[in-house]
Design a protein around this nucleic acid. Structure first.
Lengths: 242, 242
DNA sequence: GCTAAACTATATACAACGTACAACGTATTG
DNA sequence: CAATACGTTGTACGTTGTATATAGTTTAGC
């Protein structure tokens, strides 16, 4: 008990302090707890990850979950790191930095598609985990061969990943059941009455953008648009002779 | 009661259905509820915005809050729209689109600085509110004079705002009490033991970036870096002759 | 003026949550 | 065999959002 989050994150590492052999074996492993929680979150969202639900899915009592994690917040961190660890890292090969950046963005999109709840997790402690560090290390290599300094290399990667994260979660919100489109349908009439002739620009552009949110097409377009801007923006720094 | 969210958002609009004059006057206004909630969120974060806390700050019973809002989720939307309405919109004057984009980003940063909880709110229904629509309309004008089509104009603004949002919330996390730096201090030793000589690139870059998160300087740098990439990325589209 | 309707206010209550605590069972170490 | 370290669990507390029911208050329409 009372293992620190760090030790839990690195529980597979050879240097991890082994649980004393005394006492009964835990009937389930920490991995089982984490993977069960991930399955719940994948299926029904983060709110479905309650201690009680995780316990029930493993046929254990709620309090037994605390044998493996110290708190729900810690569990969420373990989930995120496990997701990062299981993500397939983009293959770089001998491609240009542009291609590599695109692959980084796309693999982050795929990751959030697979685990939408990742977009809602903002606990910084995730960066302490082995899966996250491995991912970070790999993705930093996207900028190999450029003249970026370490600070800029980190900033560039953050820039790409933050874009992917924002854009991916917007894409996911569109086209799902319980969609914003439903809300839009119900509200459109009243909204039209209120807005009237004000904000002509917002109205015209909002319509063109699929009511700004209701259409999945808008999100797809925003992704490709943004990704090209990201790459062009980096190019201005990377490909410009000093 | 049972006013729809739309009607609540537009409660100040002339066309808003006036509450029937029958029955007692509400002792407090919806505005008071919303502003109280915002004050709580500004001071102690979104979690402090409980129905009971809002009620107490206005010396009313918890259930009376429901005279003004239909649910806590709706209250959060009202708060966000009120924050957008009260935000000072960037002045554009006769500046270039680059300057205008920078001002849009900076005013969004200022907004999230003033109301950090905005970064954690992801309810799409906020876009239905008058404050949000006014902000959207104004900010779209940043691209006046460019050849961007409506769809691209929307995507460009989303691109800028999403950057501001991600980057701003990273900046806020750094340098606050209850900082990630504390966690880092406690974990650094164990982490070093686990990571060992693996991931040399991540270690070198992470150190350069202020342990990736612990230093406020890193976030400031990421802001300026990202903003320049955003503008350069848009420039490749806007300033390139077709 | 009176009644019905529309409205506010509040007390009570419920289900769900995270989790502290303590008791108990079990396996290993000396 | 005793001491130790661990796993498991029942119970319980405090907190949350909010449904429901009830009572009070004001005005519209007759």
């Amino acid at each position: 008990m009372a293992k620190s989050l760090i030790d839990l994150l690195w529980r597979d590492h050879p240097a991890a302090s082994v649980r004393g052999a005394r006492g009964p074996q835990a009937r389930r492993s920490t991995d089982e707890v984490v993977y069960s929680a991930i399955a719940l979150a994948d299926a029904e969202g983060l709110d479905a990850v309650t201690i009680r639900a995780v316990a029930e899915s493993l046929s254990m009592s709620p309090m037994s979950v605390y044998t493996h994690v110290n708190s729900r917040d810690d569990l969420l961190v373990l989930m995120a790191d496990a997701a990062h660890a299981s993500a397939s890292l983009p293959r770089f090969g001998k491609t240009s930095w542009r291609t590599r950046v695109r692959r980084v963005a796309e693999s982050n999109l795929a990751l959030i598609r697979a685990h939408p709840w990742l977009a809602h997790l903002t606990d910084d402690r995730v960066v302490l985990g082995p899966g996250t560090i491995a991912k970070y290390d790999h993705e930093l290599h996207a900028f190999d061969g450029t003249a970026l300094g370490d600070l800029d290399r980190d900033a560039a990667l953050t820039f790409v990943i933050d874009f992917a994260r924002s854009s991916a979660s917007a894409m996911l919100r569109a086209g799902q059941p319980g969609d914003f489109a439903e809300v839009w349908q119900e509200s459109a009439d009243s909204l039209g009455r209120y807005v009237g002739d004000s904000y002509p620009l917002a109205q015209r552009v909002g319509r063109a953008a699929g009511e700004h949110m209701a259409a999945a097409y808008s999100a797809e377009h925003a992704w490709e648009f943004g990704l090209q801007r990201v790459i062009a923006g980096l190019s201005a720094l990377i490909d410009t002779p000093a």
